[in-house]
Design a protein around this nucleic acid. Structure first.
Lengths: 155, 155
DNA sequence: CTTACGCGGATAGTTGACATCCGTGATTGA
DNA sequence: TCAATCACGGATGTCAACTATCCGCGTAAG
């Protein structure tokens, strides 16, 4: 799985506790990752409507919606795309006993099982929001540090 | 996701309805896929203990256990490995406000969420067996064809 | 009008999946 | 005994995707 997924989720958590736009520069520095590459992931979040951008001199990223309305699934799909990890190549139609396309209006049993598993995966991620993660981080961070982080994000 | 996963599951379904060892040559021809590459996947199944091999002139592959004791999950993990798709790089320890390793005895919240989703995915795959899939295939195939396939697998 | 910033395109390096080939050892049938 | 068939593992090549960087453009604050 794409490493940008981890970065994007952490960025959304940070953005949920920031009070204004945070630049890609700051987000990259905060997490100790490549600025140029993180910018690509942030652009994906922007295209997906998860964050809004303000261009210009004091530009940066802000969450488009309240953090409790942004599921982890939305962030993952914004980076990884919405295509299923398993894709059926219909090998049941191949070979000497291959089924004809007319017999294959119903999806392949293998594909059905894999699709159900991916639905379970998505359902699990859909039930957790950025707000949930932010609350967990806040509970593990003492108050002076939280204030310092808030100041550091908007220099 | 690895295409070998799809091949391996279909091969196990075929093996469940065969009465003797089936060679990689036959399995590849049956599914219309590359023989040499399918052999690699079958070797993975062998190492995982899902199939047993008989070498020599009339060698081939047989399911090690009854089909209703072989879960789809076991086949998937034999091909894809047991590593989680998401791997946490602990970026919470990076940057100016990075948490110290002592504070990170508890797993990262992001990693916890992703791990839970993968557990749900595995649980879904664990509840379906090769026998379930074989039954579905049998129900969609007329009897003469089933007999012909059985003969074709052992020339 | 200078500076900082987001955006998109172009460009490599690296990794892993996909695919093939060959040599080895084992077993069966002639 | 000997040739054919098969599983196995190593080595190799190809290709797409991920990772990473750079540059030019448009935008907005100071």
């Amino acid at each position: 799985m794409n490493a940008g997924v981890e970065w994007a989720i952490h960025c959304c958590v940070v953005l949920s506790s920031a009070d204004g736009p945070v630049s890609a520069q700051r987000l990259a520095e905060f997490h100790g990752v490549s600025r140029t590459y993180l910018a690509k992931s942030l652009q994906s979040l922007s295209r997906a409507g998860i964050v809004e951008t303000t261009e210009g001199r004091v530009g940066g990223y802000v969450l488009s919606r309240p953090a409790d309305e942004v599921s982890v699934l939305a962030v993952v799909q914004a980076i990884e795309g919405r295509e299923a990890a398993f894709r059926c190549t219909e090998i049941r139609q191949n070979g000497p006993f291959g089924a004809s396309p007319e017999e294959c209006v119903r999806p392949c049993g293998v594909a059905t099982v894999m699709a159900a598993a991916e639905r379970a995966w998505r359902a699990s991620l859909r039930e957790v929001t950025i707000a949930d993660l932010a609350g967990q981080v806040a509970a593990e961070t003492d108050e002076p540090t939280q204030v310092a982080v808030g100041r550091w994000l908007r220099p």
